[in-house]
Nucleic acid binder design. Structure first.
Lengths: 198, 198
DNA sequence: TGTAGCCTAACAACTGTTCGTTTGCGAGCG
DNA sequence: CGCTCGCAAACGAACAGTTGTTAGGCTACA
C-alpha cells in the first residue's frame, strides 16, 4: 500500500500534521516552508501534496480540530446542572487538561489562525467564538442566578478569562511541577475571588 | 535635503516606522514584504535602506521602543509610596493609557518579537521581562506587607495579569465606549477581588 | 560642490505548487 | 505458491513569482 520513506517510517497525513504542528508552533506558520516540513517528515516537497491539498488547508485543519477538542471537553460541563462556581472550576480544569495534552497544537490554534486567507479565516473565527461563548454562558448564568456579583460589562470578565487561558498556552509546561488541575484551580481562585457576591 | 516622493510628503524614518507598525500589526511581520512597506511609504523598495539597515532591525526598534514606553509609564508608579492596591490600580491605568495611544505598536511589540533572529530576540525578551517584573514587584510587595493574601505560587498571578494585558491588545479599541481608566479599573476590580485579604 | 535621498536594475535565494515518471506493496488469478 | 497488474505514494525537475538586499547613477537642495 504505502511506499517507505528513507527512514523506513510510514508517512501518513497524521504524521505530517504532527510535524506541521511542531514547526508552526515553534517558529510560526509563515516562516515555515514546505521544504522545512517535507524535510522533517522525510519526503520530498512535492510528495506532501499526495496527502494535503495546500499549505493553508493544512493549517485550517490543525486550527479547527485544535479548538474543537477544547469545545468537546468543555461543553458537557456547561450543560451539566451545577452551581456556577463549580461549573467554572470544572470548565477550567477541562481546558487545562486538554491543553496539557496538546500544548503545541494549541499554540498554533490560538495564535496562527490570523494567517488564514479571507476564505478560511471566518471558519476558524466561528469555532473560536463558539469556544469563547461557553465561558460567556457560565458567567452570564452565574450572574443571572445571583451566584456571581453583577458587573457593568461582564463581557470584560469573559475576555479576561479567555486572555488568561490564551496566555497559558505560552507559559504552561506539561512536565512542570504543577498539574493541569492545580493551575486550573489557581485560575479559578483568582477569577472567582473577584466574582462571588458572598 | 530631502527629495520629494510622489505625494510631496517628506519621508522620514519616523514615517517608515509608522507604516511598518500599521502593516506588521495588521498582517504580521513575516508576510509583509519590503515592497509592501515601500509602497505604503511612497518610495521604491531599495530607497528604504537609506533610512534603515535591515527589516529585522526595523522590527527590533519598534519592539524595543514599544515596551519601553510602557516601562517608562509604569515604573514611577511602582516607585511611589502607595498602598499595594492603589499601586496596582495606577499601574494598570498607566498601562491602559499607553495602550490607548499606541494599540498597533503594542500589537507588534507583544506578538511579533518572536520573529526576531537569535541575535536580537534576547534583547527584546530582556526588555519584556523588565516590564513583567514591575508587576511582580507590586504583587510581591503587596503580599509581603500583608495587604494581599499570600498565594502558593504568586508568579501565576503575575502571569495572569500579563496575560490579560497582552490579550487586551487584541480587543481594546481606543474609540470604544470605555475609557482606558474604566477598563483598567475593571481589570483591577477582577484581580484584586481575588487578592485582598480583608 | 558636496551630499542626502531617491531612482532603476539586478542579485541569488527561496516561495508554494504542478508535472510526468518511477517505485514497490497487496490483491487477484492461474 | 508464484506472477502479474493496479494504484497509492514517492521521486526529480521545473514553474513563475517573490524575498531581502545591494550597486551605481541621477537630482535637488544646502
Amino acid at each position: 500500500m504505502a511506499r517507505r520513506s528513507n527512514n523506513g517510517q510510514a508517512v501518513s497525513l497524521e504524521r505530517i500534521k504532527q510535524e506541521a504542528i511542531r514547526l508552526f508552533g515553534e517558529r510560526g506558520y509563515p516562516v515555515i516552508g514546505m521544504r522545512d516540513l517535507s524535510e522533517a517528515v522525510g519526503i520530498r516537497p512535492g510528495s506532501l501534496y499526495s496527502h494535503i491539498s495546500s499549505k493553508e488547508h493544512l493549517l485550517l485543519g490543525i486550527v479547527e480540530t485544535g479548538i474543537t477538542s477544547f469545545i468537546d471537553a468543555i461543553r458537557p460541563v456547561v450543560d451539566e446542572d451545577l452551581p456556577a462556581e463549580e461549573k467554572l472550576r470544572e470548565a477550567l480544569r477541562a481546558h487545562m487538561r486538554v491543553l496539557d495534552g496538546q500544548v503545541e497544537q494549541t499554540r498554533v490554534t490560538f495564535h496562527q489562525w490570523q494567517y488564514l486567507g479571507p476564505v478560511n479565516r471566518p471558519k476558524a473565527l466561528a469555532v473560536r467564538e463558539e469556544w469563547e461563548s461557553l465561558f460567556t454562558r457560565i458567567v452570564a448564568d452565574g450572574i443571572a442566578s445571583g451566584e456571581f456579583r453583577p458587573r457593568e460589562h461582564f463581557r470584560l470578565t469573559v475576555l479576561m478569562i479567555a486572555g488568561i487561558l490564551g496566555s497559558a498556552t505560552e507559559w504552561y509546561r506539561p512536565s512542570g511541577r504543577s498539574s493541569p488541575e492545580e493551575i486550573a484551580d489557581a485560575i479559578h481562585d483568582q477569577i472567582v475571588g473577584g466574582l462571588t457576591s458572598g
